[in-house]
Simulated scan of single mutants.
Amino acid sequence: MPLTEKIAPNIPYLRRFARALCGNQSSGDAYVAATLEAIIADPSSFPSDQDPRVALFKTFLKIWQSLEVNQREDGPGASPAAMAERRLEQLPPRPRQAFLLTAVESFSPDQVQTILDVSPEELDELLDTAGREIARQVATEILIIEDEPIIAMDLEALVEGLGHSVLGIARTHKEAVGEVQKKRPGLILADIQLADGSSGLDAVNEILGGLEVPVIFITAYPERLLTGDRPEPTFLITKPFQPDMVKAMISQALFFDTRAHNRGAAA
């Protein structure tokens, strides 16, 4: 396949990443153009033995780190997108890259390691740094709905390690609803199959009847979300999960204020 055919389908995704990384579209596009010019001038610089999207992002970041074309052109607007861009600017460059590649561009941890040329341990450290900085900006209380004690403890440690606090740990539908009646969470981490046979999905939908809040499902039964009853938008992590993916998803949901709602209640 010609090199242009490998690259072309991935340019829209690269432009999105470049905008988020640089803070505005014109600056991001300048880096994208510089990347494409570098590839045209020296096709051997493009890692042809890698997935084309991975190779393109890897090449882009080499250009981004070597050129000074980033310029601010934002006005004083306070739209959610502009606010997110300003928050992103407060992240150190490498953690910002790791966060965007994982949480926004949905690269796997292995792919991010290749793009950034880092080890699994280094990637975890970058995501930890990003997560802690995001938590400093948007720290909240998180409700965990999980019936397996060890997994619940792991999630609690992960949440607190990022700088958030745990509102409570619920093992059943009834306990989950009861926790929310005491105090409203800023985010919910929910399993689907609970200890007494009740449904975490049903619990979340009942909770979302009274408030909108980001929800991340962490489950061994992802197919149970393939129904018309799931809240929107739905974040899904499949068990067994990788801690860095959970951290990135929590940061993404809070950073972009992605609140879920019960589709049935909204109808």
Rank of each mutant, 00 (worst) to 15 (best):
V166A: 06
N70F: 05
T102L: 15
P43C: 12
V213Q: 02
T114G: 02
E146N: 03
G186T: 13
P233H: 13
Q137W: 11
E175M: 12
F235M: 05
E122K: 15
P233M: 15
A152C: 11
A20D: 07
D147G: 06
T129H: 11
R15S: 08
D42P: 01
L36I: 14
R184D: 06
A176P: 01
A170V: 10
A78W: 07
I7T: 02
L126H: 04
K58C: 06
D196H: 13
V166E: 05
E160L: 12
A260N: 01
N205S: 10
E5C: 05
H173W: 11
L116C: 08
D196G: 06
L211R: 10
I151C: 07
P95E: 05
P240D: 15
Q137T: 09
E148P: 01
S45N: 06
D49G: 08
P243I: 06
F60E: 03
I150M: 13
G131V: 00
K62Q: 13
L61R: 00
T219L: 08
M83L: 15
N24K: 03
Q111D: 14
G168D: 15
P231D: 06
K62M: 10
V32M: 14
S106F: 09
G77F: 11
L155Y: 02
A8V: 14
A130V: 03
E223M: 13
G163W: 08
D244R: 05
E5S: 13
G163I: 09
A139F: 12
R96K: 15
A18K: 00
I151K: 02
A248H: 02
Q252Y: 07
L225A: 04
E85T: 08
Q242W: 03
R230M: 07
Q193T: 10
Q193W: 02
N70Y: 08
G23Q: 07
H261S: 07
Q113D: 10
F57M: 12
Q252M: 12
